[in-house]
Every structure is written in structure tokens, then in C-alpha cells.
Design a protein around this nucleic acid. Sequence first.
DNA 1: TATCCGACAGAGG
DNA 2: CCTCTGTCGGATA
Length: 914
Amino acid sequence: MAISQARIIESLEQACSNLNPDEFIFSFLDAYGFPKSTITRLRKGGDSRNVAEGDDIGLKKKLYFRAVSKGADLDAEVESLKASEVIARNDIRFVIVTDFESLAAFDLKAEERLETTMDELDKQYAFFLPLAGYEKAVMYSEHPADVKASEKMGQLFDLIRERNDLSKPEDIHALNVFLTRLLFCFYAEDTGIFEQGQMTSAIQSCTQEDGSGVDQFFTDLFTVLNLEPDAPERKDMPAHFQAFPYVNGGLLRDDEPIPEFGRKARRILLDCGSLNWSAINPDIFGSMFQAVIDEEQRGNLGQHYTSVSNIMKVIQPLFLDKLYAELEKSRKRDRKLKELLIRLQNLRVFDPACGSGNFLIIAYKELRKLEMEVIDALNAISDQAEMYYSGIRLSQFYGIEIDDFAHEVATLSLWLAEHQMNMAFKAKFGYAEAALPLRDSGDIVCGNALRLDWEEVCPPADGSGNPREIYICGNPPFLGTTERSKEQSADMKHVFSSFKSIGYLDIVAAWFWKGANFIKGRRAKCALVSTNSISQGDQTSLLWPPIFELGVSIDFCYQTFTWSNNAKNKAAVHVVIIGLKNNEDTSTVPRIFETSREKTTVLKVDNISPYLVPGPNLAVYPRTKPIGPVSKMIFGNKPTDGGHLYVTLEERDEFIEKYPHYAHWIRKVLGSKEFINGGERWCFWLAHIPLEDVMNVPEMVSRVEKIRDLRIKAGHPAALKGAERPHTFLQLAQPLKGNYLLVPRVSSERRSYVPMGFYGVDTISSDANQMVPNATPYEFGILTSEMHNDWMRTVAGRLKSDYRYSATLVYNTFPWPEVTDEQRKHIEELAEEILLIREDYPDKSLADLYDPDKMPAPLREAHKSLDRAVEKLYRDKPFRDAPERLEHLFARYEKLIAEEKAKAPAKKKATRSK
DNA sequence: TATCCGACAGAGG
DNA sequence: CCTCTGTCGGATA
């Protein structure tokens, strides 16, 4: 049922403004796209489709509608309907009750409530969208226990914060520690570590309703949990405290102050106790808990937490697949299986950006599952039942996390995961180690991963100097140059101190560089989730050649996929996963994974290029000049005007009417949006007008002053210089005569060809485009060919996944073919044919013409002829596919660059690193 | 001076 | 809400 949401809003608005109680529900159903026939029958009455009683309207699986008289309690009505048998029998999704002034509704699937007045109903249209086939995104819907628990803990945190001074970092740390201990206790009393409900009932009986005594209670409780069973101090404690077991394991090592509680906080505490904590999922609970507590993250709960499926994409190719293969190979061979057990007990997993520990927890659980399978296999081939215990210890798991609370949560979650796995072990084999006292948890260090020495955090060799098998994994933060703090910029400089420049390297690159240096020459591998930018555009040649020089190469990768988890506002980013290994490590073949919504495919290749396609370890360096004798491509005109040089059509007409002799001040301007999608924009183009003349026009004064102010405020040298001529664009590049070829800087990845077009110099191009002044149709023909677009697709930067055409990376690096005059003329003819065909569609924008689903056949064919002709310039035999074209282009690129170098041997090396 | 980027941003369905 | 697709100006060389 595809229906435009704008139409829904409009129809709802109409139904509510001309409110007719008898008709309302029918208009409502119509708004959400129910078939007219259904509505007509419902209106007539007596139809079997109506499953409701009396005057109500009910549609199976959809909704149940009831109108009540004014003054009735809508909520109570909804509640009673929700529980009624007719709702359950017909699997109703929405219950709606209205008195035609207000409306109350309940979504039984999402368990969400809506209360609104009728005139606001259109604003709430999204609530009922599932009726039209649009499902709502519900955060972590598959884990209601985690949601409830983390929300309750969040409330508790707020109440504690109200009452306690948390201005000093050590106070915050103390509270972090308290919350994680508390969480452990809730979990413990629901999972058999404590007696069922032991702590909650003790709180109930030992503390006052106004909250007094709660802090003392926890002081005593944590003391006793830290006392060994035979410790003499135990005897001094009240009897109900003595009943608590010895926990330790480092959870209660330090004596931290306990916050004070009020009446409300105590009540929430008891509420927490009544939740079922055994259903908590340590994999994601930690992230949610952290998100609830961390103020900065509250607005966008969990947007960066890594989903289990994405973690598996990292750890399976990194080590799990290989270990499982080992198990299959070793079945039936006692010695081999025992060796595998030993290996599992000795390998190390290290997440240098571990957050609340998701990767470590999943890795731990997966290794425990594998260990159980190995034990199974051992039991299957042995006559005597030997009692194998788990030998995998949390102390094999290392992490670095900068946030104190997240680091506490990570430590705790590992314990919870251990307990969970011990229970699974017991369920399978009938025995398991004691839950208490807790053993050492993971080695999680609270600190800055870019400053710490990773080898100190995760020693690459054991005490006797034997090298360890180590797997580095994780999802480090992504941060471009503009959003970084001063400290983070300094961190980057520190990590890349051996680099000549770090350009636009994303901060995540620092983890790759440190990771590559860590694994170099060791029995170690590293795989990280990253923004796709580090294998695109400018960053590729900065990061990868130095990594390859270490003797490290790409072991496997997941090509770009869109970031996704169950959070409401998931981060808008396209990511890749890249695994690194030493060149000498031949235990695996390079694998390229490609994932789409439907499936994931794997391609085994000889080598993975830094662009994450099959190919050599070759990165294309940005150049300031084209390789061949072709026209120069220049950057567009950059306003930096806060919008004050732009004018609307109305403003333009008004201005020209008043000052007809200044009509030439206003010019048509193109961003890439106007170029690609059509539409008009206008701007003041005053590059050749003295500032005094401009300031003599009253309408201009405030515009110009605003621009001057904002440029002064921006403060950097370029802006300050621009403040001296505030009536012009900050960067001027418009050619003075002739035509120019316009190339948009960003364009959708759906298109096979980046749209380009010719304009006269009277049309201003903004910095959203680049220009090739006085380009020839030949140049247009080459640039709009499939050959060139394939090159662009590989070496260009991307905005998310959309193409970002740049002169330095795409145009100037392109290996142009060698042509005769005759060939050149042929290309020009084919190129002009394309321009002519475009003119046959004056009503269509370039977006329409180059939409792969809508591209007119004649245009498509003209492009195909051109593509074929351009290919022929490179070689006679047609290319089979894009990889073959690229192979040829890269070979030619290398040849041309080598020739260029040979011509100018005195020039310094082009490489930017070291 | 020129230009690459954005755990995006804004519009539209 | 989700999907689609390119603004704008700072930071960097």
C-alpha cells in the first residue's frame, strides 16, 4: 500500500478541520489509503468485515475505533478495550477512542500511546503510519528487558544527580562505580548468584521510606560482598548482611563513596529490583545503559553502538572462521582437539576503542561457544567421560576506553557474559565452575588509545617471552577535520608524527596506523570498522602506502555499507570493515565481502587494493595539473556570504525595477542542485564594481555589512581578506570570456555518468561545481564516457556513497588516451550528438535524463556509442567489464606517471608520507 | 591560494 | 518516520 505521506497529512488535516463525527473514521481510513470499497461497505453497515460490536468500527489486524460522548474518560476506555477479548481475537493493532475533541490511541504492537486534540491529529500522523504499510522504527524492540532496565537506571541516575554534588571528576567516577556495582547486584539476585530477591528485600526492610539509610545500607552491603567467607569482620555485621556471599573479582576492590538517596530514588531502586534482570543481554545492555547515563548521548541513544551482526562481520573473518575450520579439520583427532583448546585459552582479543565492551563480549561468547563444541568433539571420541572445564579467561580480553563510565560498564558486562556462558555450559554438560567469587575481569584500561602504548596495554608476549596470538578489533570513533577538538587534533599529530602531512585523514586512521604497527612482524591481525572515507579520495594515498611499506596488507574487507543498528537516530554514515595482516601470513586468502540488504557475497582475490577492489597496492596521489595536454579544471566561485549575496526571483525583479541601470549586477548562479535538478537562483555579482558604488545603493548596505561581519567573525586569514571586499564572493574564479564546462562536485551514485554541461561566462558557477574554461567537445566527450566515469568511481572521494568529482583526484589523475586528429573529431561528433539529444527534452532536468530508471533510450544509445568509441581509443578489443577497463587505466596511469618522473628526475618524490 | 571533507543536513515522500 | 541526494564554510596544504 504505497501512499504518499504528504497526502496522509493533507487528508487528516481536512478530516479534522471539517469535523463530522459520523464521517470521521471513514475519512481517517481514506487518509491512510484503505480501499474505497471497504470504506463504502463499512459506512453502509452490516458488513462482515466490521468485527466490532455496536456502533464501533473494527478491522481485523488493523484498528478498533470507538466514539464516546464528551467528558468520558478516554484513557480508561482505551485501557478496557486493550484488554477486551474482541481486540485479542482479531489481532487488532490500534485502539482509537475519541470524543471528537480529543483522541486517545494505543499501538498494541509497539506498545505506544498517543493522546492528542483533534486539531493536532495531523501532526501525529506518523503514529498510525503502520496502517499505510510504513513500519515504525522501535529502538531495540527485540530486547524489551534491556530497554526497561536501562530506562529505570536512567531515572535513578537523574534522581541521584539531583541530590548529590557531582561537580568533581572523582565524584562522577564514584557514581559510575556505584551504578555498575548496583547493576551487578540486581543481576545477581535474579540469576542465582545471590538468593532470589535478596538485595531488594533487604533494602525494603532495612531502609526508611524517605530514603534515609539507603547510603549506609550500600556501604555495609559492599563491605560484606568484599569479605571472604571466613573473614572475622563478617561476624560483626548484622545477620541479613552475613547472608550475602563473597563476590570480589575486583568489582568491589576500591572503597568509593555512596550517594545519598531520597524518597523517590528509593522507590525507583525498588522498581529496578522488581524487573527481571536475568533477561539482560550484556551484548547491548552496556551500550544502552551508557547511552542513558551519558548526557551527551541522551538525545541520540546508542547511535554509534555496534550491532551484533556488524561485530560478527569483523570477528568472523578475523579469527572465528579460521578457528572453526581448525575444529572441522581436527575432529576425531584427540591431540589436535586438545591443541585447539590450548590455543583458545592462550589467544588474546584486544579492542583499543572498546566503549562498553560489545566487541569483547561477543568475541568472548563466541570463543566460549566454540570451546564447548571442541569439548563436545573430544567427548565424542573418548571412552571415558573426562570432565573438561572452560579454560577461556576474561583476562585474555583487553580494551582501551577513554570514557570512565563506559570502561566500568565494559568490565562489568564481561562478568555478566562470563556468568551467562557458565550457565550455558552447565546446561549443556551438567556441571560448571562456581559463579563466585568473581575471577579477574577483562583488562580494560581507562585512557586515550591514541596516547597509550598499546603494547603495554596488551603485551604481545607472555611472561616467558613467547609471542602471543593476538586479534585487534573494534569500532573506533570517526571524526573529520572540522569536528575535532584541539586535543584530538594534537592526538592525530602525535600518532602520525612520522608523516609529512596528515591532510584530511579521519581520526579513525590513527587506529589503523597504530594497529598496523602493532601487528607488524607479529602473530597478530587487526580488523576495524571505519568510515568508508579512508579508502576513498584524498585519504587513500595518505594512509595506505605507509601501511603497505610496513609489510602489512589487506587481509579482508567489507565494501561500503550503510551503518545501521536499532537506535532511533542511527548515525548517517557509510562504513567499511578492513582487516590487516602481515604479508608473510599466508594462512588466509584476501577476501572481499559485499553486502546488500538481501545477501552477502565473498570474492577471493589475489590482492585487495586500498580502494577495496581487487587490484594492486596502488593509491592515486592528488595532482595539481592534468597528466596530458588538456584544459585546466578550476574550482567554482565560493560565496562565504551567509546567503546575503543570493537573491530570490522576487528580490531580483524588485531590485531591477528600482535600479534598471544596475540590472547587470544580478546574474544567474548555479549550484550543483540547480545544474542537476533545474530551478533558478540569482546572485549579486559585483566582482568589477567598486565597493563605494555598491554602498551607495541603500538596499545593499545591510547585505554588505552582514557579510563583512561574518567574515571578520570567521577570523581565518582568507575570510579576513574577504572582509575587505565584502560585496564580492570570497573566492573568485569566473572565466571572463567564452564557454566553460560545468562539472558538479557532488552527484548521486545511482547515475552511470556524472552529468556535465556547457555554460556561457554570464552564468556564475558556485563552488558546488568546478569549471573547465573553454573546454572542447572532445574533452566533454572523454569526461562523459564510461571509461572516465569508471575511473572516477574508483579514485574519487565520496559523500557517503555519492560521487565527489574533484580536479586533483579525478580529472588531473586521469590517463588520457593518445589520439589522432581524426579520432578526436569522431569523439567530438558523438559528444555533440549527446548535447543535441539532451535538447530534445527541454522539460527534463539532468537528474531525470541521467536517472538510470528513466534515461531516454536515444540518450542512452548516444552514450553507448560514445563509450564504445572512447574505449577504442585505448585498445581495439572491447573491454569486458569495469574491472577490465580499470586494469587498463591503472596500467596506463602508472606508465604515464613513470614517464613524467623520468622527464623531471630532479623533482622531489611525489609521496606525501615521511 | 585552492580544495576536501562532513558518525551530515535538509527536503520530500 | 525513512529515503534521497547535494549546501556550505572551515581546516588544511
